Amino acid sequence: MRTAVATGTPIAPLRDRVQTPDAATAYAIQEANTKHWLGEGRRLVGRKIGATSKAVQGMLGLDQPDYGMLFADMAFGDGETIPVSRVSQPKVEGEIAFFLKDDLDGDRLTLADVLHSIDYAVAAIEIVGSRIADWNIKIVDTVADNASSGLYVLGSQPQPLTAFDPILCGMVLSIRGEPASTGAGVACLGNPLVATLWLAKKMVEVGRPLKKGDTILSGALGPLTPVKGGDVVELRINGLGSVRCRFEGEA
């Protein structure tokens, strides 16, 4: 997997090359890669939640979401230009990003703990990618591939939770000025805050609890959309404003 990351050349599915093609194996591979990258000097700044819709879970053979690591070198700012070659087989989706002002650690975490710990939210574009050829993925493939992570773009209009409705907020993601994906907060496990609670509990369970200052990409509000060089992507979420990026070059 690390070779595929380094070369940008997709590989055959991993599920055909491991003895036990299950979630535990996939997360063990992800954790080994995380430790490797931390050892290489990358900085862990948050987490992403994937597979928050029942349709995607069914496709991957999951009964719950999955998660991946966010590193500092994956982040772009509102309006930046992104080399499309940075992500293998790139697709974009609209999300709500939460930022923590307190740790989310300890047993028996509740939604109240999540509400207390979130400092603010912004609109965010996640640029997912797959190091697996032709996006031919199941649970082992995507989780071992850091939940098919690529890059992400954060909006520059931070808002408190009281400024928008996480469940009913509408989302429109446009490419070159044309709507390409629509959705709402309810598409993300029924509530992006519930998705965040799931993540917080899972991170305590695996020994990587969420910390003050972490960024959380809480899950897609609508379908994935492929992108290519020259595409301008803009995301608008009711109550959270917009975020925009441009892709340049060739994959």
Rank of each mutant, 00 (worst) to 15 (best):
K201V: 08
V92A: 12
A133R: 15
K35A: 15
V140K: 15
P13D: 05
V122C: 11
A28V: 00
L109M: 15
D145C: 12
D66V: 06
P226R: 11
K48R: 14
V153S: 07
A187M: 14
A112I: 04
G207K: 02
A121P: 08
D78M: 09
G39I: 01
A187Q: 14
Q64G: 05
L14M: 01
A23Q: 12
P21W: 10
A75T: 05
S130A: 09
L193C: 08
D141S: 14
P209G: 07
Q89W: 05
Q64D: 06
F247H: 07
D22E: 11
D145N: 12
A97Q: 05
G61L: 01
K138D: 12
A184S: 14
S130D: 05
T81L: 06
A187T: 08
E205N: 02
V233Q: 04
Q64Y: 01
E31T: 00
G155N: 11
F164Q: 12
A147Y: 00
A144W: 01
V232M: 10
D73T: 02
G239A: 12
V206I: 11
T34P: 08
R43K: 15
G77V: 01
V206K: 04
G68R: 02
D214Q: 02
T34V: 14
V186W: 13
L151I: 03
A163K: 08
W198N: 08
P10G: 13
P158T: 04
R15P: 02
T110C: 14
Q64P: 00
T225W: 13
R47T: 00
K35Y: 07
K202A: 14
I216N: 12
K201I: 05
N191Q: 13
V172L: 07
G41C: 07
W37Q: 14
I49Q: 06
V186P: 09
V194I: 11
I167V: 13
D78N: 15
I118L: 15
V84Y: 02
R15L: 04
F98C: 08
T196C: 14
A200S: 13
W198M: 08
G129A: 09
G155C: 07
V114E: 02
G219M: 10
C169I: 02
P179G: 14
L193R: 12
M74W: 04
S53W: 00
G170A: 15
R246N: 03
V45Y: 09
L115C: 10
D165G: 10
R108P: 06
G79Y: 02
S149L: 08
K228C: 11
T110Q: 13
G106N: 06
D113S: 10
C169P: 08
L109W: 10
P83R: 10
Y67V: 08
F99H: 03
I167Y: 03
T142L: 15
P209K: 04
V84H: 04
G213N: 02
A72I: 01
F164S: 13
M203D: 01
S53C: 07
E95A: 14
V204I: 02
K138W: 03
P65C: 12
V186K: 15
M171Q: 14
L70I: 04
E248Q: 11
M69W: 09
R131V: 00
K101G: 08
L189S: 14
A123W: 00
R43P: 07
D145R: 10
P166V: 07
